[in-house]
Design a protein around this nucleic acid. Structure first.
Lengths: 338, 338
DNA sequence: CTGAAAGCGCTTACAG
DNA sequence: CTGAAAGCGCTTACAG
């Protein structure tokens, strides 16, 4: 039995009127509206979203495609997205995609596409032209976060620039033996984040007329930075005066390794990261701050715009979120300037 | 225009047959099935989940209620839930609830309830009797994770027991000056996790005939453990020989504080945590391991059982997930035994 | 094995 | 401001 019909009967009005009273659209007298509301709440009525979606074509649900949940950046972004979406009256359906292409295809073909979402936010996922075509053919607005994607509105920091500024900071302090400890190029994330940050490092070094001797690839984590830094710092032949880490977690690993070896940060070793991870403060880490939760919220704003009025392909927004140099106490001039 | 109708027309069959061929139910000749499949994929057909749900009453979607996303335990659980749910052909819709009662009410009354989900998993959320009633009146199976909830199937570790074992471990090594550094009782999570772990500590101490002198409340995080441990360890009057931390993050904070002060772990200070956090290995932390990702997967299994056949209120499953003592190198006998 | 018909629970023009 | 009617896109008995 149609629940709306029950409400209508109890309120003594038609289903049409009950619907208008409850869901807002159209004229209803204040009196009627109140009667209907009372009936609805006394019956514990809740609209069937399936029935409503079927006729309106809207689900009030947004799909989020994301490669990780329990990593700092992604978790923060997700919190930002979630709170904004809830505020806007939307649900969030989560689709985790791995780098297994088969699983990824299934998410797109099978899950995402069942007309269950009004729009999609892709976080840290480089959509292929084909995937974009698919989503577009379904009329779903898409917003990307974490890197540029051709043809859709997109939001990200400039990873090259972030690493360039980090490196320039150390150069400006007078460091010459600067090493880059970044993510492994073979365990690349989408958007080649590791490669971009490395490239920013290289650019800054070249701009300063320096060769790029010292580049190491490590797992993108605290233990990853720690293990490699231990080896590098212990060996006087490889030990630099400053390290640009590919992310704060690596940087924190470096600091822990330095402490272990009794190497003073920053007097004997300067360390800079990228992220402004929640542990950066505690380790007094100088870093470039990107606020992922705010990015998540901005992505929702972008998406709401798209939902209101899809942007034309030729004028798609690409927002570069500025990163801010946040100086704490892990960087200083080298002990013996050149 | 009904998309299914297009497929049916192209395949030269009726909508009924097309539906049966595509969604599995009922007899269809192999021949017909193939024709329909071909037509569907050539048209890029995808079923409308709204239409299907409206008639079947099933959404193939599960709601997950969770208080945090970007905290270790919750992120891990979420990954476990997500992967299991995807494997079972379900979508995951995420509802974050804060401790703002108004926001929480909205999630229940407004979001969760729009007949959008087939079932609900509550992670680290102590549902009220009223909330359970609401979900049950909608015929939605519910499973709880992280603590016991009256009347619904539930999955959790025994927090009292975990802290008891941690404390007993230190006692068995001969420690007498044992301190508990646990979560603040005023920033309690649901299920009173902080209080339970404290209580396990107290029980173990009492069982050993010890008084409970030393109990401190700190923020449930690495910086929280660090800041307080720094003060406690620096002062010879308060410095214990061993610390039971309320969680691994606090324990790691303690270890960092000890290092800072030049206090050797474990020879001068033993530290034990609870969780087996991903950083525990790197800090050689002895801890009680609870595998939250596996817990997430188990919760989905429980839920799938409920979906198949709801358990009767009088025989509801309450699974206690065993924790395992994982000895690394942060605990040893005290320097000068009593 | 296949098809015609009813119906899931809503919203939305369209009249009035 | 209100109501009768059509229809959103499927699935499912029911006949055949």
């Amino acid at each position: 039995m149609s629940a709306l019909a029950d409400v209508a009967r109890l309120a003594g009005v038609s289903k049409s009127t009950a619907s208008r009273a409850l869901s807002g659209g159209g004229y209803v007298s204040e009196d009627t509206r109140e009667k209907v509301s009372a009936a609805a709440s006394s019956l514990g009525y809740v609209v069937s979203s399936a029935a409503a979606s079927l006729v309106t074509g809207r689900t009030l649900n947004v799909g989020v495609i994301i490669p990780f949940i329990n990593r700092w950046f992604f978790g923060e972004v997700l919190e930002g997205i979630e709170s904004s979406l809830t505020g806007a009256g939307y649900d969030l359906t989560l689709y985790r995609v791995s780098d297994d292409p088969e699983q990824r295809r299934r998410v797109f073909d099978y899950f995402l596409v069942r007309k269950r979402v009004d729009a999609v936010i892709a976080v840290g996922i480089e959509l292929t032209a084909q995937e974009i075509l698919l989503l577009r053919s379904l009329g779903k607005p898409i917003v990307g976060l974490g890197g540029r994607i051709e043809g859709i509105p997109t939001l990200s920091i400039d990873d090259v620039e972030a690493a360039r500024v980090a490196t320039a900071h150390l150069l400006s302090l007078g460091h010459t033996r600067i090493m880059h400890l970044g993510g492994d190029q073979h365990e690349q994330m989408d958007f080649r984040v590791h490669a971009q940050r490395l490239s920013g490092f290289e650019q800054a070094m070249q701009d300063a007329g320096r060769g790029i001797a010292d580049v190491r690839a490590v797992p993108f984590s605290i233990p990853g930075g720690y293990a490699t830094a231990l080896r590098i710092l212990a060996d006087p032949r490889t030990r630099p005066t400053a390290i640009v880490a590919g992310c704060d977690e690596i940087a924190i690993g470096v600091i822990l390794a330095a402490r272990q070896l009794g190497i003073q940060v920053p007097t004997q070793l300067s360390v800079i990261g990228i992220d402004d991870h929640y542990l950066a403060e505690m380790f007094a880490l100088t870093t470039l701050s990107q606020a992922p939760e705010a990015q998540g919220r901005m992505a929702v704003d972008l998406l709401m715009n798209e939902l209101r009025q899809p942007s034309r392909p030729e004028s798609v927004e690409r927002i570069t979120v500025p990163v801010r140099l946040r100086v704490r106490s892990s960087t200083t001039a080298p002990a013996r300037p050149v």
